[in-house]
Each structure stands twice: as C-alpha cells, then as structure tokens.
C-alpha cells in the first residue's frame, strides 16, 4: 500500500520540484501544455498490463464482443475508439468484472491482468476491482461529503485510522488537482461541486484505493472544454504510474493523448497499434475511413 502512496506523493513532489511543470499547469500556457501533451510514452508490449484472449461476450443473447484479442501496454494511455454501440464500454467493463452486474451475461475467453486470469474461480472479485479505478461518463459522486467520498475506498477496505485517512484524502485530492479548490469545504456534500470538479473528485476517489489501472468510460464527454482539458492533463501526468484505458468518442482527444489506439467496429477489434501507426498509417481500409471521418 505504501509503495503506491509514495508513488502518488512522487507525482506531486516532482511537479512541485519541476518548476516548469508547475508553471505549465497553473498558467495553462497554451503552447507549453501542447508540448506536455505531446510527450508520448514509448510503448513496451512485451509485458502487457492487460491481455485479452479470444474474448466473446453475449448480452441478452446478443453477441456484443466477437473474438477480441488485445494487449494493453503498461504505463501508457490506451484509447479505445469506434462508433457508438461497437462494444467499447462492454470491453472496458469486462476488465473490472462490472459487466457481471448486468442481467443475462455470458462471457467466454480470457482476460489476463498481470498474467493472471481474472475469470479464474479462485480470483477474488474485490481484488480485481481494487486494481482498477473507474471513471464513468457522468461523474457520480457518492451521496456524502467530499472527504467521505475519497475516504470511502480506504474505509471499505478496513482503514479506520482518521489521521491516515485525512492524509490520504489530501494526497489524492492534490493528485487530482482539486485540493486547492475544496480544502476549505471538505465536509460539505460532494454534489455541490461543479460537474468538472465532480469528475476530478471521482478520479481522486478511484486513486485512493491504490489501483494500477485507470479505466475511463468517455470520462470527459459530459464536461465543458476547460474541465475536460484538465482531466486530459491529469491523465497525461498520471500515466507515469498508471496504465490508463480510455473509451472515447472524440477522435481529437485520442489524437491528443493516446499512446496506443484500439479501433473497434461492431464488436470486433479491427486494428490496434501505436497512436502514430493508427493515425498516420492505418493498415485497414475501415480504420482509414473512420479516422478520416467518413463515418462516426
């Protein structure tokens, strides 16, 4: 647990020490932000963080995911793109086994996280979910105070030490860039925050269970441009320590922040590769058409 904590402290510390970064984020100087966003990670696919093998999913007798094979790189931003209804969200929800909450689901195939099959009988579902923070389309603060929202994860996993909890709350609110805006009203209800602040709160809440992976299901689509930019910047910052998987509707967002891109169409993975490959030199005709905006 403490190693994770140290990591996020490092993020904060490094952005404090590195005067340039701080200047970037606070002043929001356009050109410099763009250079920050363009810092694409070198991809290493020899040891993928998540590896999907022959995954087939049926939802209410409908074949939603068809024979999906996929590797998700470690400590990079992976964007899953494709027209709506192509199974992006379903794929994302199989990763943390949230899909099983739906009615009439049939899942075949394997999903390996760190080499372990998450559908194995001996796997504890709670441990899978702890490994991944989920950011949904609309921010979903729990019906409690800002403080309790962040402390919720640590608390349900048994942390009752108030001193430690306050430290965690402060850390993760800082990591999500929300601390300065809310530090004076930690105990007011979370849903009084603006919608952009709520989404950052949800990110901080997800980070507080010390995940390794962040899943974003169109996490910026309900936000105004400034808020969604803030979230994007956070993702770029966080990929140093987390593998980030984003389902996104907006191609431009994928272009801005993706290191690795997966293009899906009608439940199948058509093409997957580094952002450079997909956007500049797609191999499949379908990908080329989608990228060029022939359909969406």
């Amino acid at each position: 647990m403490n190693t994770r904590l140290l990591k996020s402290e490092n993020i904060i510390a490094s952005s404090m020490n590195n005067g340039k970064d701080v200047f970037l984020l606070e002043e929001g100087a356009e050109a410099q932000v763009r250079t920050l966003l363009l810092q694409k990670t070198k991809l290493d696919l020899t040891a993928p963080h998540i590896s999907v093998k022959n995954l087939n999913v049926h939802l209410q007798k409908k074949h939603v995911l068809k024979d999906v094979n996929l590797d998700i790189p470690n400590k990079a931003i992976t964007c899953i793109i494709g027209p709506s209804g192509c199974g992006k969200t379903t794929l994302l929800k199989t990763f943390n086994r949230l899909l099983e909450q739906s009615v009439d689901v049939k899942i075949d195939g394997h999903v390996f996280v760190d080499g372990e099959d998450i559908h194995d009988k001996n796997v504890e579902i709670i441990n899978i979910r702890k490994k991944m923070g989920l950011l949904s389309q609309r921010p979903c603060p729990l019906p409690m105070s800002i403080f309790d929202n962040i402390a919720y994860g640590p608390r349900i996993h048994g942390n009752r030490n108030m001193k430690e909890l306050s430290r965690l709350v402060e850390n993760y609110l800082k990591a999500a860039g929300l601390w300065d805006e809310v530090k004076d009203r930690l105990h007011s209800p979370a849903n009084r925050l603006s919608i952009g602040q709520q989404q950052r709160l949800c990110l901080a809440r997800g980070l507080a269970v010390e995940p390794e992976i962040i899943l974003g299901d169109e996490a910026t689509s309900a936000l105004d441009p400034i808020s969604s930019k803030k979230i994007e910047e956070l993702f770029v910052e966080l990929k140093r320590d987390y593998s980030i998987i984003l389902v996104t509707h907006t191609l431009r967002q994928a272009r801005r922040i993706a290191d690795y891109v997966v293009f899906m169409y009608l439940g199948e993975v058509i093409e997957a590769g580094s952002a450079d490959e997909i956007f500049n030199n797609p191999q499949k005709e379908l990908t080329r058409e989608y990228i060029s905006g022939a359909f969406s």
């Binding site: 943390n96 441990n127 702890k130 991944m132």
Partner: peptide, 18 residues
C-alpha cells in the same frame, strides 16, 4: 437510484452489502 452510483461503489471494491 442510478445504476452508475452502484457501479461507482462496486468499482472501488465494495461488496454488494457495503
């Protein structure tokens, strides 16, 4: 009660009862 709210709690590793 919206399903997303339950999902938010479950995705943090909470049990159904929690």
């Amino acid at each position: 009660i919206p399903k997303e709210l339950r999902d938010a709690s479950l995705s943090l590793g909470a049990t159904n009862w929690q």
